[in-house]
């Protein structure tokens, strides 16, 4: 976890997370989160060689659903929830090609 010592670039990570931060927020979070990262470095004390990671508390397998059509939402409710809609479609600012 040596990278952690350098601290994170809050501005860059906030962009990844698509949250615009003010300069003040960036500075505040930078300090607070570096403290948290410093704290979690204590995990380095542990030797986890050969330890399996836990992704699920109780892994069960093959939780499957039959391929049978169920009920969809009422179209009007979907449109009513959307901040902007045109002709039943959800309107967003022009998507630029990625």
């Amino acid at each position: 976890m040596s990278e952690a010592n350098e601290g994170m670039d809050v501005g860059y990570v906030a962009k990844l997370a698509n949250i615009d931060l003010t300069t003040e927020e960036t500075a505040l979070f930078q300090g607070q989160l570096n403290q948290v990262l410093h704290y979690v470095e204590q995990l380095n004390e542990l030797d986890v060689g050969g330890v399996e990671p836990t992704a699920h508390a109780f892994p069960v397998y093959n939780v499957l659903r039959k391929d049978e059509v169920g009920t969809s939402l009422n179209h009007a409710d979907v449109v009513a929830n959307a901040p902007a809609a045109t002709d039943g479609e959800i309107r967003v600012p022009k998507i630029l090609d990625q």
């Binding site: 962009k15 698509n18 949250i19 615009d20 931060l21 901040p83 600012p93 022009k94 998507i95 630029l96």
Partner: peptide
């Protein structure tokens, strides 16, 4: 995009950043 608060932007990326801010 689909529900909740929207703060508009010139493109989706700007919209996300502002809305989530």
């Amino acid at each position: 995009i689909r529900y909740g608060l929207r703060v508009d932007g010139k493109d989706p990326i700007e919209l996300y950043g502002k809305t989530r801010a």
